[in-house]
């Protein structure tokens, strides 16, 4: 079991969460080329090692989180809210 330290709920089993995917994708503007959109939607770095990825605390607070996790050892370095404004709120409340 992977244990994810949710900034709102505390440390929980990963079975409470749903896996999202790569958290580093930047979607291009609406009038960007098909090539750019194809790259953003379909193509992935698929890192072997530490990566930023999204998890949804679907059986908890239902917040989306950014988790820095190794895809080899499953070790987690950091967990933050997805939304930058909420990240600030969590930081200020520490």
């Amino acid at each position: 079991m992977i244990r994810i330290n949710c900034p709102y709920c505390g440390e929980r089993d990963h079975s409470e969460f749903s896996y999202g995917g790569d958290a580093t994708i930047n979607y291009p503007s609406l009038d960007a080329s098909e090539k750019e959109w194809t790259e953003a939607i379909f193509f992935r770095k698929n890192i072997k090692g530490f990566q930023f990825e999204t998890w949804h605390h679907s059986n908890g607070c239902r917040m989306w989180l950014v988790v820095e996790r190794s895809t080899v050892t499953h070790e987690i370095k950091s967990v933050k809210p997805c939304h930058p404004d909420l990240q600030k709120v969590v930081e200020n409340n520490k």
Partner: peptide, 13 residues
């Protein structure tokens, strides 16, 4: 196992 991984070992859930 529902999350991306290169580990050749499974998880308990």
């Amino acid at each position: 196992d529902w999350y991306k991984s290169y580990a050749q070992r499974g998880n308990l859930p």
